[in-house]
Write a protein that binds this DNA or RNA. Structure first.
Lengths: 347, 347
DNA sequence: TTGTAAGCGTTATCAT
DNA sequence: ATGATAACGCTTACAA
């Protein structure tokens, strides 16, 4: 056995409390869990020692004995600093807290290898459920074992690859198509597409599909010169400049995610090109702080998180039905920038 | 003992692998931990069974046996959806991941009671360290026991109350004073203060102190009529309107946090009052997307998180020196809005 | 009302 | 090179 030297000032255990109070461990456990048959006198004495020693029950030990699972849900997102994912995380946390579960969070940085590595630790941690915003290009076949063992898994914002699991997605195709149709309706025929990266990203593909669909429906030819991308604001700003400086520039831009849209706004402002119509995908706090306001296709990231968390909780409650995919609607919010007419002579 | 019915399809344990492979548990453990004296033949056989069963070592059990502490750091922030705190969290995660530690995150919603309750679960989870953005009005005396037992605790953005612990703060006073002095230098004497809530919040108090200090240094009288507040964008926007519609309105506004600044931008745009000078506290992505650009006192939320995490890691590595307070500098970023002259006839 | 002993899934000691 | 056994801190069946 292990005569491991306790680190100095080791935290007191239930046994320590028992010894100090002159009772058995069983009795301390009873007091702590508010079990009925305990004399008030013992209870008092035990609680006094608990206070005095600053005792904290060891949840790991408890969970192990009681269910051999950690009372926590694991969440993997690409980037905690991105307000979109932060809001998703917030929705998840809100829901699982009502069940007394904790949230173990990890960033994957959009890297499939890192995603797999963090998911593995979460699984080894014995989380009760897993919620995942998968990275582009990751393969989730390795999760099949967990599914078989009944671990609830939900994918958010992007679907799983290689495993049947619950998913909560926004209606990217429809939202993008509506945005572009909106621009067409306002007279635009040269509409730029500013996508995120990598191009294989699910949301990017769906939104691009929506863009093409709307243009085709309006019999507008797709011009590859009008397609560009940039995942961060800086890249997107540069791409925007490239677009508007083309020989045959677009009169409108559809910015296919939040960072791309911010990049476009920065670029258009700095270039004094507020004549270019703009619709973004995903709403943001300051959309109203522009003149004209920024029109967007609004998603509901909080609801994405809430719905995903509710799904896994239902599974924990015994829902054994087949894997479900919930698609959340998007909403076109017209604030002005998407309703600008084409600049004269360019449409 | 507990003849608790295993949940259907319970996950395989190390013992299961051992039985299937026809070896002892100790041997499986050896293989998994890459311990030296193991025959290639047994290793192969064991690994095959590990794969076949989809075995995941139970980290809870391991941690318990090995250190009786969870290989995780607990982080409590007011709100995951606020990009400021999201970025702080991102900084923390980045650092602790390099040590193979996980992040258990909880929102306190600026509520001291909830803060205490989530901190308590984190402690019971046996996290190796605690990082905290405390809520206004919370009292941390209950953490003294943990400090005594050697648990590393760091406070971010706001200092602890009632316990000596490491803290990482921004230089709020200095930053605010510089912002207001900057406005004074550009000719303003009627400068509004748009604070966050509650007024007892540390950052709010410090920034208000900086505001008063700069005005007093310039012999400008403090006008209570120019002090208002609003913690969320909506409230802040309403407060901004109240300010600029006063009989003797301010010619400049100092918005003392990120949400207040965004609220001010929204209100000023909608009211077509881009003549009012504005300096915000805390930078934001779209600051450059306005005409003129929004001048701000930039903090470094990521660095706040990184520094806090590094502090607790140093403690884990044995640093027993006294509680330290690190103050991070702020930077005045002039983009135009803070350099506007006072509107004619109003200064 | 309280205590004893077993056991959750690992790893450490000591054998062999 | 491998195994038997105890132990981490807690809860639970059973006994007293």
């Amino acid at each position: 056995m292990a005569p491991r030297p306790r680190p100095r000032a080791a935290r007191p255990t239930l046994k320590d409390v028992a010894r100090e109070a002159g009772v058995s461990a069983r009795t301390v456990s009873r007091v702590l869990n508010r079990e009925p048959r305990i004399s008030e006198r013992t209870r008092k004495r035990v609680m006094a020692k608990v206070e005095a020693l600053g005792f904290r029950p060891n949840l790991m030990a408890r969970n192990m004995r009681v269910g051999s699972r950690d009372a926590a849900v694991g969440l993997v997102i690409p980037d905690l600093a991105n307000p979109f994912f932060g809001t998703v995380a917030s929705g998840v946390e809100e829901v699982i807290r009502t069940r007394g579960l904790n949230l173990v969070i990890a960033s994957s940085d959009e890297d499939p290898d890192r995603e797999r590595s963090v998911v593995t630790t979460l699984l080894e941690r014995q989380v009760m459920a897993l919620i995942l915003v998968p990275s582009a290009g990751s393969d989730h076949r390795y999760l099949r074992h967990e599914r078989r063992h009944g671990l609830p898994i939900a994918f958010l914002d992007r679907p799983p690859a290689g495993v049947a699991a619950d998913a909560v997605l926004s209606d990217n195709f429809e939202g993008a198509a509506r945005a572009v149709a909106h621009l067409v309706r306002h007279g635009h025929r040269r509409i730029g597409f500013l996508g995120d990266e990598p191009a294989m990203l699910y949301t990017r593909r769906e939104r691009y599909r929506g863009y093409r669909h709307a243009l085709e429906a309006a019999s507008v030819e797709i011009d590859p010169e009008l397609i560009d991308h940039g995942h961060h604001e800086g890249d997107a700003a540069a791409a925007t400049i490239r677009l508007v400086e083309r020989e045959h520039p677009p009169t409108a831009i559809f910015a296919a995610n939040n960072l791309a849209c911010m990049g476009a706004l920065i670029a258009l402002t700095r270039a004094h090109r507020r004549d270019v119509a703009l619709v973004g995908f995903d709403d943001f706090t300051l959309a109203d702080a522009f003149e004209p306001g920024t029109s967007v296709v609004a998603q509901d990231p909080e609801r994405l998180g809430v719905t995903g968390a509710e799904l896994v909780l239902a599974r924990l409650d015994g829902d054994r039905s087949g894997a479900r995919t919930v698609v959340l609607p998007t909403e076109l919010v017209a604030r002005g920038s998407g309703e600008l007419p084409p600049a004269r002579g360019l449409s």
